[in-house]
C-alpha cells in the first residue's frame, strides 16, 4: 500500500507540474483528492490493514495528501498570477490620450507682482495698508506738501469729481492717513498697494488707471543709507542678485532729499543697449527722505523722527521683468495674455 501511495503522489505531482491550465488543475485535484479520487480510494482500503499498520500508512497517506495539496495550491497561485498578468496586459490603454481636463484659473500678472512685493516687504517687517480710491484733495495733495497752486500739481493731471474729491493720483494718501492714525506715537513701517488714476490718454505707455505700491518707514534715526540698503534688497530679490542699483537726485514735493532709482540693465548688463537707451541703467522707482512738512502734518515731530518713502509701479516692473511692451495689455484681459502669465 505504501508503494501504491507513493506512486499516486509521484503521478499527481508530475501531472501538477505539467499542467498550465486552471481547469486541468481542478480536474487533477478531483482525480486524486476528490470523493472518488484515487487517494481516497486507497484510503478506503485502510480498513483491511492491521492495527499496527494503520497509523503508519495513515501517516504516509496524510503526508501524500499534504504534499499534493501544497503542490496544487502552489500551482494554483502561480496560474492565478499568470492569469492576472494576462488580464492586466489586455487592459493596456493609450497613455498618450489627454487627461480628463481640469479647468485651470490663475492670477493676473499685476496681482502676482503686487503679492510678491507684499510678501517681500512683510518679510522685512512692513505692514500692508489700504485706502480709498476716491480721495480728498487734502490727503492726496495738501497732506503731502502739495498745497493748492503748488506748481508740482501740474505734474499730476487729476480726475476731479468735485473741488474737494478726486480719484487718487498715487497711493501716498494712505501714508498720510496711516501717520495720522498712529498719531506720531509709534514707528510707521508700511507699504500700500492699490489702484491710482491720472488724466492721461491711454496708449502703449500711458493708462488712465494703473497700480502703485508705495512704502513708508518713519522712526527715530532713519538714515538715507537705510533707504539705499532697503531698495537694494528689494531690487536684488525682485530682479536678481546680480542687479546693481544706482540712486540719482530727483524731485518730489513729499520727499527731501529725493531720489530716483535705476537698476543695471539686464539685457546688456550695464553696457548700454536699446532697452536702456544706451545708458546701461533702467529707471525703476522714486523715493526719498520724508519731507519735514509731511511728517509734521502726519503728527510726527521732524526734530525727533525721520523717515523714508518710495513708490513704484507694478506695471513698469512687469514690463521690464516680463517684457510686456504695451501697458494696455494689463487691462484688455486678452486670454492669450492672461494665460502667459498666470503662473508668474
Amino acid at each position: 500500500m505504501r508503494e501504491q501511495l507513493e506512486a499516486i503522489q509521484a503521478e499527481a505531482l508530475e501531472r501538477i507540474s505539467q499542467t498550465e491550465d486552471m481547469k486541468e488543475l481542478q480536474d487533477i485535484k478531483v482525480t486524486y483528492l476528490g470523493k472518488k479520487g484515487s487517494l481516497t480510494g486507497v484510503l478506503r482500503g485502510m480498513g483491511k490493514l492491521s492495527k499496527e499498520e494503520r497509523p503508519v500508512v495513515g501517516e504516509i497517506a496524510n503526508k501524500v495528501r499534504e504534499s499534493i495539496t501544497a503542490a496544487l495550491d502552489e500551482k494554483n497561485e502561480k496560474l492565478e498570477q499568470l492569469q492576472l498578468e494576462e488580464q492586466l496586459e489586455a487592459e493596456t490603454i493609450d497613455v498618450t490620450l489627454p487627461g480628463r481636463p481640469v479647468k485651470v484659473g490663475g492670477a493676473h500678472l499685476l496681482s502676482s507682482i503686487v503679492q510678491e512685493l507684499e510678501d517681500l516687504f512683510i518679510g522685512m517687517g512692513y505692514e500692508v495698508r489700504e485706502g480709498p480710491e476716491v480721495e480728498t484733495d487734502f490727503y492726496n495733495f495738501e497732506a503731502l506738501n502739495l498745497p493748492k497752486n503748488h506748481p508740482a500739481r501740474d505734474m499730476q493731471d487729476t480726475f476731479y469729481i468735485t473741488n474737494e474729491l478726486l480719484l487718487r493720483t498715487h497711493t501716498s494718501p494712505v501714508q498720510a492717513r496711516t501717520m495720522q492714525e498712529y498719531k506720531g506715537e509709534k514707528p510707521v513701517k508700511m507699504i500700500c498697494p492699490g489702484k491710482v488714476y491720472r488724466r492721461d490718454t491711454d496708449d502703449a505707455t500711458h493708462s488712465h488707471q494703473f497700480t502703485q505700491i508705495e512704502g513708508l518707514y518713519v522712526d527715530k534715526n532713519v538714515r538715507m543709507s537705510d533707504l539705499k540698503g532697503t531698495l537694494d534688497t528689494f531690487a536684488k530679490k525682485m530682479f536678481g542678485e546680480d542687479r546693481e542699483i544706482r540712486l540719482r537726485p530727483s524731485f518730489f514735493p513729499f520727499t527731501e532729499p529725493s531720489v530716483e532709482m535705476d537698476i543695471s540693465c539686464k539685457v546688456c548688463n550695464g553696457e548700454g543697449c536699446s532697452v536702456c537707451k544706451g545708458t546701461g541703467w533702467i529707471e525703476i522707482l522714486g523715493g526719498g527722505m520724508v519731507h519735514p512738512k509731511v511728517l509734521e502734518m502726519g503728527g510726527y515731530d521732524p526734530e525727533v523722527y525721520s523717515g523714508f518713502a518710495f513708490g513704484m509701479g507694478p506695471e513698469r516692473i512687469a514690463m521690464l521683468k516680463y517684457g510686456v511692451n504695451d501697458i494696455r495689455q494689463f487691462y484688455t484681459n486678452d486670454i492669450r495674455f492672461l494665460k502667459q502669465y498666470h503662473k508668474a
Binding site: 516687504f121 512683510i122 518679510g123 522685512m124 517687517g125 512692513y126 505692514e127 500692508v128 514707528p187 513701517k189 518707514y217 522712526d219 527715530k220 534715526n221 532713519v222 538714515r223 538715507m224 543709507s225 537705510d226 539705499k228 540698503g229 532697503t230 537694494d232 534688497t233 544706482r246 540712486l247 540719482r248 537726485p249 531720489v259
Partner: peptide
Amino acid sequence: YDNLPFTLPQGASQAGA
C-alpha cells in the same frame, strides 16, 4: 548718492503680516 553706504534700518523690528 553713489558714495552713500548701504545700511538697513536699525529701529526695533516688528512683525509684518
